[in-house]
Amino acid sequence: MSPIDFVLTVIGYILIGIGAFCQIVAGMGMNRFPNFFVRLHAATIAAIGGSFVPIIGCSLLALSFEELGDVRFFLAGGGFVAAVFLLILAPVGSHLLAKAAYFSKAAVLQPKVVDALEEDIRKGEVHE
């Protein structure tokens, strides 16, 4: 195993470990956070930290695994593309969910510390 491959393998395993940690944290957040919007934050942690990061790690692992031959480039390429898709789409999904839940008043905002959007609506800067 060449030094570059060794480094790639180690980075890949570290990224997968970070992913597992993020999944556990996100699960705890989903269980304990008080309302919809902060739980959505936990779900986005699961999507980015728990899916995007380990997929990058898996791609690096595949890239460094020479026994696969040329197939490893296909595997790694597919992994990177899927990770970029996730990186683009997961925040968009969370944003749309939060917006829909806020304006349809389906989710109760309780306990509330500060609501900047509500103040902006009151001032007339933002319209539904």
Partner: peptide, 11 residues
């Protein structure tokens, strides 16, 4: 929906 959603859909 919002401009963020529209842009992501366009991509």
């Amino acid at each position: 929906m919002s401009i963020i959603g529209k842009m992501a859909t366009r991509i």
